[in-house]
Design a protein around this nucleic acid. Structure first.
Length: 264
DNA sequence: ATGGCTCTGCTACAGAGA
């Protein structure tokens, strides 16, 4: 089974890319982030005509996460337990959706950006990751053999070698010790970040800014990552970063990351 | 690939992204 994650940066602007990607790769489960639309605006028919089912949550032009699956999509859950809220009045944002697909509990996650160090959004980001750690820890406590994939845009570069120039990021978000510790909390809860296990090379990126010719110069970041529960991690036989999806006309600034999972 | 940002709502620009 193939499970992929992709920050698509508007599903309406790139639905043709997404469907072409599914047809080309045969991915069974695709987790999307930054769909940037409301539920009724999501182009579900384009996926359904290819034999996929869709679960989506989106409230506005911001955020939005989805799971697209051709191996079932059961027990859809919008948001995880005790997920932090944002705004005034406080409300749950469309940043997490879970579903059981082909026997794997897949979570499509869009971790808050944080904006600037010290910004309330930065505190929100750290809190969001801490609550996710607690939820993920609970899932393993309830079932140590759980098949759980936490995939998405984490907005954290765990290592200095995950960004094109650590000096550029000094004083910026995504690389601070606080963010990296919050990200590591998921590992401390028992999960393995499987993309690095299979793709350990430094300067392996999943995102390149649209500005300043960052992609042709390969000045990117590795922020689209996958935590797998112990029982799932041992079934992951390979990971692929679909770098070519950053090329061509109107790409997303992120590319898909594909996990190959062996059958049980 | 041969270039120096893009999406949304809205219709002028502002907010957000990272």
């Amino acid at each position: 089974m193939l499970v992929a994650t992709w920050n698509i940066n508007s599903i309406r602007a790139r639905v043709d890319r997404a469907t072409a990607f599914l047809e080309r790769t045969g991915v069974d489960v695709l987790a999307l982030q930054e769909t940037k639309c409301k539920d009724e605006q999501f182009p579900a028919a384009a996926f359904e005509s290819l034999g996929y089912e869709v679960a989506h949550v989106g409230h506005s032009q911001w955020n939005g996460v989805a799971i697209v699956s051709r191996v079932g999509i059961a027990d859809v859950e919008v948001g995880f337990p005790d997920m932090p809220t944002w705004g005034d009045p406080p409300a749950a944002e469309a940043r997490a959706i879970g579903a059981t697909c082909g026997g794997v509990r897949v979570w499509s996650l869009y971790i808050p950006n944080g904006r600037e160090i010290g910004d309330p959004h930065f505190t929100y980001k750290l809190d969001w990751l801490a609550r996710l750690r607690d939820a993920a820890s609970g899932w393993l406590a309830a079932d140590p053999a759980a098949q759980v994939a936490l995939v998405g845009d984490w907005n954290v570069a765990p290592l200095d070698s995950d960004v094109w120039d650590p000096a550029f990021f000094a004083g910026r978000t995504h690389v601070t010790p606080a963010e990296r510790e919050a990200f590591a909390g998921i590992a401390e809860a028992g999960y393995t970040e499987v993309s690095r296990v299979h793709l350990p090379a430094e300067h392996t990126y999943t995102y390149w800014d649209y500005q300043q010719l960052r992609f042709p110069k390969n000045m990117g970041m590795r922020i689209d990552l996958t935590y797998a529960s112990p029982a799932l991690a041992e079934r992951v036989t390979g990971v692929t970063i679909e770098r070519n999806e950053r090329k061509g006309k109107t790409p997303s600034d992120h590319v898909p990351v594909v996990l190959e999972i062996e059958a049980r």
